[in-house]
C-alpha cells in the first residue's frame, strides 16, 4: 500500500479539516436555537461518516509506517488528545444542559483540536508551542 501513502494521507488531512469544521459549526449551532438541527440525523450521520473515514485512513497510515508509533511520542499524545477531544465535544453537544458550561466545553474542545493539529503538523507532543519552547 505504500505506493498510496500520499493519497491516503491527503484523505486523512481532508477529513481532519472537514471533521473540525463540521464540529465547529454544529457546536455553534448547539449554542443557539438551531440545536435541534445540529443534533438531527443528517448532520450527525455526516459527522459519523467523516470520522469513520478519518480514523480508517489513520489506521492505514499507521499500518503502512508503524515507525511513527515509536518516534518521540507525538502520535501517542495525539491519540490521548483525541480521547479528550471526543469527550469534550460530546459534553459540548448534548451531555450538559447549562448553556454557560456548554460554551466552555465547546471552546475547550476547539482548543484541543487546535493542539492536535499542531502536534500533527510539528510531529512533536508540544504542537505549535514546539518552536518556542524547544
Amino acid at each position: 500500500m505504500i505506493e498510496f501513502y500520499p493519497q491516503i494521507k491527503a484523505v486523512h488531512i481532508l477529513c481532519v479539516l472537514l471533521s473540525g469544521g463540521l464540529f465547529a459549526l454544529r457546536g455553534l449551532m448547539a449554542q443557539t436555537r438551531l440545536a435541534g438541527v445540529a443534533q438531527g440525523a443528517p448532520l450527525r450521520l455526516l459527522s459519523y461518516t467523516i470520522d469513520t473515514v478519518l480514523l480508517t485512513a489513520a489506521l492505514m497510515l499507521v499500518s503502512i509506517l508503524p515507525g511513527a508509533l515509536f518516534a518521540n511520542g507525538w502520535l501517542t499524545v495525539k491519540l490521548i488528545l483525541l480521547l479528550a477531544y471526543v469527550a469534550l465535544a460530546m459534553l459540548a453537544m448534548k451531555r450538559v444542559h447549562a448553556p454557560r458550561a456548554r460554551m466552555i466545553f465547546y471552546v475547550a474542545a476547539l482548543a484541543t483540536y487546535a493542539w492536535m493539529l499542531g502536534v500533527a503538523r510539528m510531529h512533536h507532543p508540544l504542537g505549535w508551542l514546539h518552536g518556542w519552547l524547544a
Binding site: 500500500m1 505506493e3 498510496f4 469513520t52 480508517t56 492505514m60
Partner: peptide, 13 residues
C-alpha cells in the same frame, strides 16, 4: 498491481 492490493485492503473497514 499496487492499486489492486490497495483495493483489497479497502475491504478491512
Amino acid at each position: 498491481r499496487p492499486l489492486i492490493h490497495m483495493l483489497v485492503w479497502m475491504r478491512v473497514p
